[in-house]
């Protein structure tokens, strides 16, 4: 089980700040997220990737983009706008 925490517009669109699902890699996590939160499909999530206007941090340590990125049980993905700050 992994967790996806949503911030800003993704959280607004999804109507929740947290989604938990089973996924072994980033691509399957995002596909699962789009299924769980249809409001994100096609805008924030494009197939197995995040739209370039958004980014994903793995456990707050590093930003990840490639769908093949391996996820482990207990990992947390943070989904937020690419344009951080302001």
């Amino acid at each position: 089980m992994i967790s996806i925490e949503l911030f800003g517009v993704p959280r607004l669109r999804a109507g929740t700040g947290l989604v938990r699902l089973e996924a072994v890699d980033l691509g399957s996590a995002l596909e699962g997220l789009a299924l769980a939160c249809p409001g994100l499909d096609g805008s924030v999530v494009l197939g197995g990737r995040a739209h370039p206007a958004y980014k994903l941090s793995l456990n707050g340590d590093r930003f990840v983009t490639e769908p093949e990125t391996t996820l482990n049980d207990g990992d947390v993905l943070l989904l937020l706008a690419a344009d951080v700050g302001g």
Partner: peptide
Amino acid sequence: PATEKYREL
């Protein structure tokens, strides 16, 4: 989408 954060929130 690049400015959506500013518009929406």
